[in-house]
């Protein structure tokens, strides 16, 4: 009986905390839906009687938000596809093949992740400047430069996480495939790839979020080409010293959050398993 009461209290507390934690998000969506006059009212109310999509319209039409949205999508999708391919190969090699210095390579991958970004922004800036002379698409002021850096920074974690998924595929399967005459590459793409698909999905979501959220590199690499900016920078457009368009800012924030939220809900179960795998495997 006592136990049931304490459980009830714990559940009640959890629900209350969840409500408090999620409330700022509700507030964000609400602000985006409120008419202008209510947004900056000194008597904020947690509801609105006259919801309107005006703020969303402003966010999408003014300042070519659509263009930035497209840029963000291009960068994120390119990063996801490339990191999928490269990290799948790397994770397979790391779990399936034995070779000298395997553990060293594994640890190296993690150490790569350790160097703080700010120590790299400056030389990366110069690197991208030089790249621009050779291949303009991957250089400064172009989306390619963002793809390159995000790919590099999302690979280590992607490999580390995929390892657990690849390792979970029974090795007997590979033996069976080999007996049936499948070549190694055939096994890799026709058997292993579909089997670790859940892991690939979870990993791509993380790569996607990584590229999608970035502000520092977008701010430092895309300096003079407004048409190549990404969404996080576009949000700052609505922030002005004296008169900010809160409604549009919150509408833009809401629009930016939706893809991440949708992806996450789709894969959340696998993500938890993936994290457990990354630690335990």
């Amino acid at each position: 009986m006592n136990r049931r009461v304490s459980r009830g209290i714990a559940e009640g507390v959890t629900v209350v905390i969840a409500a408090v934690v999620a409330f700022p998000l509700y507030w964000m969506v609400l602000t985006a839906l409120k008419p202008d006059a209510e947004v900056i009212s000194t008597d904020p109310r947690p509801w609105t009687l006259a919801p309107t999509l005006d703020s969303f319209v402003r966010a999408l039409t003014v300042q070519s938000f659509g263009r930035y949205l497209l840029n963000s999508i291009v960068v994120a999708v390119a990063v996801v596809l490339l990191s999928l391919l490269i990290s799948f190969l790397a994770a397979t090699a790391l779990t399936r093949f034995r070779f000298r210095s395997r553990t060293t390579l594994l640890i190296m991958l993690l150490v790569v992740q350790m160097v703080p970004v700010e120590a790299l922004t400056i030389p990366l800036f110069f690197l991208m400047q030089s790249v621009r002379d050779v291949a303009p698409v991957f250089g400064l002021n172009h989306l390619g430069s963002l793809v390159l850096v995000h790919l590099a920074f999302s690979l280590p974690f992607a490999i580390w996480m995929l390892r657990g998924f690849v390792a979970a595929v029974p090795v007997e399967l590979e033996e069976a495939a080999t007996l049936d005459g499948a070549s190694r590459s055939r096994f890799l793409w026709s058997v292993l790839f579909p089997l670790v698909a859940p892991g690939l999905v979870a990993t791509s979501v993380l790569s996607f979020i990584h590229a999608w959220n970035d502000f520092l590199f977008a701010k430092t690499f895309i300096i003079s080409a407004a048409e190549n900016q990404t969404l996080p920078l576009a949000l700052q457009v609505f922030v002005k010293p004296d008169q900010n368009d809160w409604g549009a800012i919150m509408a833009g924030s809401t629009l930016m959050t939706i893809p991440v939220l949708v992806f996450f809900i789709l894969v959340q179960r696998r993500l938890v398993a993936g994290l457990a795998g990354a630690v335990k495997s």
Binding site: A22, P24, V239, L261
Partner: peptide, 27 residues
């Protein structure tokens, strides 16, 4: 899902949300 949601908000958007919608002294 409600508890995880804050992690999914784009960091810049989250910072703007806190700065303007939560901390603003007037509204």
């Amino acid at each position: 899902t409600m508890l995880i949601a804050p992690f999914l908000v784009v960091p810049v958007a989250a910072a703007l949300l806190w700065k303007h919608a939560l901390y603003n002294p007037e509204y």
